[in-house]
Design a protein around this nucleic acid. Sequence first.
DNA 1: CCTTGACTTTGAGCGCGCTCCAAGTTGTAG
DNA 2: CTACAACTTGGAGCGCGCTCAAAGTCAAGG
Lengths: 128, 128
Amino acid sequence: MTAHTLRYYERVGLIQPVGRARNGHRRYSEADEAWLQFLHCMRATHMPIREMQRYAELRELGDGTSEARRKILEDHRSEIAEQIKRLEQAHALLTHKIANYKKIENRIRIGGPKDMEPPVNCEIVVAS
Amino acid sequence: MTAHTLRYYERVGLIQPVGRARNGHRRYSEADEAWLQFLHCMRATHMPIREMQRYAELRELGDGTSEARRKILEDHRSEIAEQIKRLEQAHALLTHKIANYKKIENRIRIGGPKDMEPPVNCEIVVAS
DNA sequence: CCTTGACTTTGAGCGCGCTCCAAGTTGTAG
DNA sequence: CTACAACTTGGAGCGCGCTCAAAGTCAAGG
């Protein structure tokens, strides 16, 4: 996380105005760091800034926002589950295509038939 | 995939100029569809347009680009593997936090101690 | 005292991937 | 014949998430 990003997150309300040293420089507490790490984790899994803002807001409100916050997390968790599914399908497809390319390359090396584009379609994904 | 996106992909060279009906409207062949499905699958797993362009270019060149194309796919596959890892970590973290929220909500319901922000840190991710 | 460098601020700029607008053409239904 | 819908084009616009530029302040080192 760059300094730019930290300031940006503060500007848009993802983190509360953070403590300062006597010279005005920002000093991040351990709590700040933990929170930033959580934010980072959510961003890394494609939670939109908007949703993180909503969560941060509720968190500031504190009392009585527990269920709303939980719902956000649950929603994001199912988002993540879907992402994993997509990624695993794509992973399988790529493995399939890579194997295909290798076959072709071997055929060339031993002087077999010409280089051909392997099937470019997504049967695996479609079929499964 | 919207019509806008299809035209965009054609503009930026992800697909070759596609066949037209007599009135000038685009007609996508089954091969086009298969290729588009593949592109869609790569985009859905966050392959940048740039890289898809490189792949499409090599594919047009045909002969002798097999290894280069395979490398692109292999690179993307490891990207995907990393994504999956991140997502699984986040999924675990969220499950942990959601359980925590539930605990808190129950304590409230039975008149236990006050609503408190559960630990917001990422120990799970950090620790594992 | 002066330079260097790390921070501060506000506000603008940018790269990505679409997404839409305006104006024009064509085919179909009433 | 007319109206409408569905496509065509080139080019502009947009939302997201940073990322950076310019100008200023302060602290330490030579």
